[in-house]
Design a protein around this nucleic acid. Structure first.
Length: 296
RNA sequence: GCAGGGUUAGUGAAGCGGUCAAACACAACAGACUGUAAAUCUGUCGGCUUAUGCCUUCGUAGGUUCGAAUCCUACACCCUGCA
């Protein structure tokens, strides 16, 4: 089996400074950035998702931004397929792929080469969704499906198990030739950064963006559920003040950060760093050690 | 000043003599996580400690009762009708 291209992965909580670090590394080592973020994939959702700016995109090539239509939706499996292609392509061109993002599932789908099972049939999904958890357990048992191995109180998981007819998805061990850097950040510092970032977003016209997107794509699509959009939608509709909208935005971001913390905490392959100097040392060492596999 | 309503754990809010450390929601904390993942789900959530255990709580201080967050009295603060 051919050696995989070297891959740098940068993870961390929202607003922890992932993008900034990625830019630094990309500039220094001729890198290209792949965004592993379940919201920046959507077209038009720019300010509120903290999508890299046009200037940043001009300075360093970015991939998997704006690849999804807000109404059509997206998924981890689609991401995985696209990301794998992009990473391979970047490697072939002799550049350094840098996977950056806070969506744990997307990251792990690359790190552990998740074997996603086929997408569900919409008709069947609708039918199963209408059933209660108890009915679903009943159905599973009629089909000799064992639910003890899965989170059987989670309706969504039970449905998925039935749809897959009991087949379990696969995963591999950690991708070879991969350096995973995690940016650690104190909660207080993070909160301050989030507050500041929201102010900046508002100054850049976030409210207008939300209004525009609501008119264009409606209010019920997936990216509209993102922390900022969810919070500002009520402000746009006039039911809450700007201050309250910002307050809720922050709350939503902090809750997101909490989930990200939990997700990444369990991954023992992540090397946690405090500052970008430390990160660059790690990258330097990693690239030296793996130079033989670099396509010069 | 008179009459009425209110004061419950981080917040909102049930309870109105025993089965109340006190429903429920939110927040918080911990965890799971494979085609919606910023999703979905699980556990904890007064303290000690982890026990069918003890201790301290339901504005404050007393009282009635075998027993009070629940009844009575006084006081404090908040809202409403008449002044």
């Amino acid at each position: 089996m051919a050696q995989l291209a070297p891959l740098i992965v940068i993870v961390g909580q929202t607003a922890s400074g992932k993008s900034g670090l990625a830019m630094e590394i990309a500039k220094k080592y001729k890198g290209e950035i792949i965004c592993a973020d379940s919201w920046t994939v959507y077209k038009g959702f720019d300010i509120g998702t903290a999508k890299p700016t046009i200037a940043d995109q001009d300075a360093v090539p970015h991939h998997l931004l704006d690849v999804a239509d807000p109404v059509a939706g997206y998924s981890a499996a689609i991401f995985q397929k696209q990301a794998k292609n992009v990473i391979e392509d970047i490697g072939k061109r002799g550049k350094l792929p840098i996977l950056v993002g806070g969506t744990g599932l997307y990251i792990d789908s690359i790190l552990y080469d998740y074997g996603f099972l086929p997408r569900s049939d919409p008709t069947l999904r609708q039918k199963l969704n209408a059933l209660s958890l108890i009915d679903l357990h009943q159905l599973a048992s009629e089909n000799q499906l064992d639910l003890t191995e899965i989170d059987n109180r989670n309706k969504r998981r039970v449905i998925r198990h039935i749809e897959n007819n009991g087949t379990r998805p696969t995963r591999t061990s950690l991708r070879s030739n991969t350096l995973i850097i995690g940016i650690s950040c104190e909660i207080e510092v993070l909160q301050a950064r989030i507050v500041k970032r929201i102010d900046t977003m508002v100054k850049r016209g976030f409210a207008d963006e939300v209004r525009q997107l609501g008119v264009t794509y409606g209010w019920d699509n997936e990216p509209m559920k993102a922390p900022g959009y969810r919070a500002f939608r009520d402000y746009i509709k006039g039911s809450i003040t700007l201050d309250l909208a910002k307050e809720r935005f922050m709350r939503n971001d902090l809750q997101l950060a909490k989930k990200q913390r939990t997700w990444f905490k369990r991954n023992e392959s992540i090397l946690w760093i405090e500052n970008s100097e430390h990160a660059k040392e790690l990258v330097e060492k990693f690239l030296t050690t793996n130079s033989s596999s670099l396509n010069n």
